[in-house]
Design a binder for these strands. Structure first.
Lengths: 339, 339
DNA sequence: CCTCAATGTGCAAACGTTTGCACAACTTTA
DNA sequence: TAAAGTTGTGCAAACGTTTGCACATTGAGG
């Protein structure tokens, strides 16, 4: 029946003023030890917990990190979240997570509303790069960390995977194993990471003196279904046009490709070699286990928090670029040399 | 330089009082249309967005649903989240997500802090059932929905999967396909869902007049590794003691079992039939595709929000129990009749 | 005995909203 | 023409904190 106890209730019981209670609970040395302990005991007895809303209102900031993600159902995002959770919790921050369902407009709205909560800072996960951000960011008074996209501005920082390098690494590995005709199954068309991985792919080809054939580029969107579709497409190509290896934008589509290959009787890696990207848990138990480029997703999350904290503390912050390693498993076949 | 605009700034510019602005922005009919529109235009020009902290303070509630989950990196949780997201967003609620890292003590602390945010209500995802909840719940002034665990109290409601039925369904299917010696690979030892699925398993056995052999119960924890371990264990059993089919607590461990079987040269389903639980996306593309009992996870999330909303609206709320269907794929073999 | 510093506590303003009530200016009704 | 509505707006309190400043008490130094 009684409302939640407030600082005033404690004050009344302890026979002191609200301000004394506030200070006592904050362990201020200005309050005598005796009073401090007495007040804290009373607070404990009443099960007092402070109104964070009121505190946020007066201090103009709350210990909340706003997180915007396109969705929480994606294993890549889930992994980043895990890193975020660990790091932010360690530092006494909570997270207000809003998901934009992949809608850029909603994404902006979420950022807007998180700032309404007086969040200390924002972390935005999104590979899209809605143009609308620039003006919005300029108005924001809190630091913003973008994960895997690239934005500039005051109090705006980036933490990202080196996608170009990853694309290069995957392709280089295939070349190293003797492949000459290599395909790339793409990701979301307008995504930055897709573009960067594709760029790495082309650079590796170039460096090896291999020709680049646009026909080897297959459209995709990073979904399981896109992988399945890619394999069906591959089957329709004439024998001499078919890549002997495909580098996939992400593990999800690589896994889809694997599944369809199995159904269609295409042997992996004997008939076709596959490299994925992300190193999600499932890759270790697929059949065959998937060779992939690791993305240090949890680290991405931890670093995002670290950068945010640094920015809040007024320390200089630089953009962070993380490189993952190639995880060689069993989905790539070594080609014989023709000599 | 300039702080975020407040209602007062708008008032000053518009030459009216703050209260008029507040009402105008809320589209109150008490304000003349002309003033309303003028004020709204000014607000738009200033990029005004309300201080949610202040609003929460005065109204004593904020449009926030607190969500407590053990982790965000689990695909099952991710799926529930998706349902939560959709439903809550549709009704204008935000979600403050806190993850407890599986630590029951932290879980209680998170609940505590979410109530400090004046959350409208709480949704708790956790299959553990820490005893500590009862007293905490009694003090809470907001409704709480538990997903897949079972708590009672005032303003406490439950939304859950019918795990007993699911366990029965999986086992019944195996019996139906002619299996007689059926194993059960368990989940987290103290978890409610594990116990319920095991109970369903035993009921199916009983109903079919099949003997129950405790040796057919394998310990597990729902992880991929637990699945691998279970298969190795199975290999060590003497031929006549080996189950011909195993019902797994969840898909993750079933998938682990599949992977290990492949590595060890055990043919699924020819040598061993497998049924999982959850129907996570990966089951459709495993090799072979996994027969499993669907868990309507997204629906779980949607229903949790629906129940919460109903409770907030003062409508009567009853506990909800969801049943999933059996998804027959290719990991179960039909046994020949011996006659 | 007076002044000064140190120590502990209280007062009151402020944060940005919402909302019950009062009030002024009109308009209608009797 | 007075009384009674109607309509639009403003006043001021309230929500639960934090915090700069002032005050009262005490003890020490001169």
């Amino acid at each position: 029946m009684s409302q939640r106890p407030s600082i005033k209730d404690i004050a009344r019981i302890a026979g002191v003023s609200p301000s004394t209670v506030s200070r006592a609970l904050a362990d201020s040395p200005r309050i005598s030890l005796a009073t401090r302990e007495r007040i804290q005991r009373i607070a404990r007895e009443l099960d007092y917990s402070p109104s964070l809303a009121a505190r946020a209102l007066v201090t103009g900031a709350s210990p909340i990190i706003g997180v915007v993600a396109p969705s929480l159902a994606d294993p890549y995002i889930a992994a980043v979240m895990k890193g975020l959770e660990e790091a932010s919790h360690q530092h006494g921050y909570q997270r207000l997570v809003a998901s934009s369902q992949g809608d850029p407009e909603q994404e902006l709205a979420m950022v807007q509303m998180l700032s309404g909560h007086n969040a200390a800072g924002l972390i935005v996960l999104s590979s899209r790069a809605p143009e609308g951000y620039a003006p919005l960011l300029a108005r924001l008074s809190m630091p913003v960390i973008f994960v895997n996209s690239l934005h500039v501005g005051e109090r705006v920082y980036n933490v990202m995977t080196d996608n170009e390098y990853g694309g290069w690494l995957a392709t280089h590995h295939l070349i190293d194993q003797g492949h000459v005709r290599i395909g790339y199954l793409g990701g979301p068309a307008r995504g930055r990471s897709h573009a960067a991985r594709a760029a790495g792919y082309r650079r590796a080809l170039e460096e090896a003196g291999l020709p680049f054939d646009p026909a080897c580029l297959m459209p995709g969107d990073g979904s399981i279904e896109a992988g399945r579709e890619a394999l069906r497409e591959w089957l329709h190509q004439p024998d001499d046009k078919r890549p002997t290896a495909i580098f996939c934008y992400n593990d999800l589509s690589a896994l889809g490709l694997l599944a369809e290959a199995y159904q269609q009787g295409v042997a992996i890696p004997d008939d076709l070699s596959i490299v994925g990207f992300d190193n999600i848990p499932m890759t270790a138990i697929s059949i065959p286990p998937l060779t992939t480029v690791e993305q240090r997703t949890e680290e991405l999350g931890r670093q995002a928090v670290a950068s945010l904290l640094a920015a809040l503390a007024g320390k200089p912050v630089t953009d962070i670029i993380l490189r993952g390693e190639l995880i060689a498993r069993a989905s790539v076949k070594r080609m014989e040399d023709h000599d």
